[in-house]
């Protein structure tokens, strides 16, 4: 039985006409699967490879390079919360924010809360330096997340 739903397979195949080679659909396919399943299991890698006429090792090679995609042993929670630790945020409390969130959630970066709601990550520069310290909630910036605003953010994400 296939792990990827028919709908997901069609979404992946819809990218094929955009590129002269099917391999170029690797990243879009990984993103689609990752969003839907909160990880990219081994079986999904094989199915993506089959859809794109690739060897599973080629898909895995690309996937593992980015450090962005999770495998089935460590799936994402509902919300992925990235905390910037690069220079502009560090100068305005980014490191303290990461420590605070880590402490409040009781997890280290890379882990997910027991209720499956929040996955915490550290990030290199998110390009939100005008609102440092900044975080990314999935793929949306939140600016000026000072320590006194961190609790409010967590309440919102836990809802």
């Amino acid at each position: 039985m296939s792990l990827l739903s028919e709908e997901l397979r069609q979404k992946i195949l819809a990218y094929v006409p955009r590129y002269p080679r099917k391999q170029a659909v690797t990243l879009p396919a990984l993103h689609l699967v990752h969003d839907a399943l909160r990880c990219v299991p081994r079986q999904a890698i094989e199915e993506i490879a089959e859809l794109l006429d690739l060897h599973p090792a080629e898909v895995h090679d690309t996937m593992s390079f980015y450090g962005f995609f999770r495998d089935e042993n460590n799936p994402l929670g509902q919300t992925r919360l990235w905390v910037c630790r690069s220079l502009a945020c560090m100068l305005r409390g980014g490191e303290e924010l990461l420590a605070y969130l880590s402490d409040k959630l009781g997890i280290a970066p890379g882990q997910t809360t027991a209720d499956g709601k929040i996955s915490l990550e550290f990030a290199e520069c998110l390009g939100g330096c005008d609102g440092a310290p900044c975080v990314l909630v999935n793929d949306e910036h939140r600016m000026n997340v000072t320590l006194d605003r961190a609790d409010q953010l967590l309440d919102e994400l836990r809802r």
Binding site: S86, E124, G127
Partner: peptide, 11 residues
């Protein structure tokens, strides 16, 4: 792919 730390004008 604007990723140079401290750069955000493309955004």
């Amino acid at each position: 792919d604007e990723s140079e730390p401290c750069t955000f004008n493309n955004r």
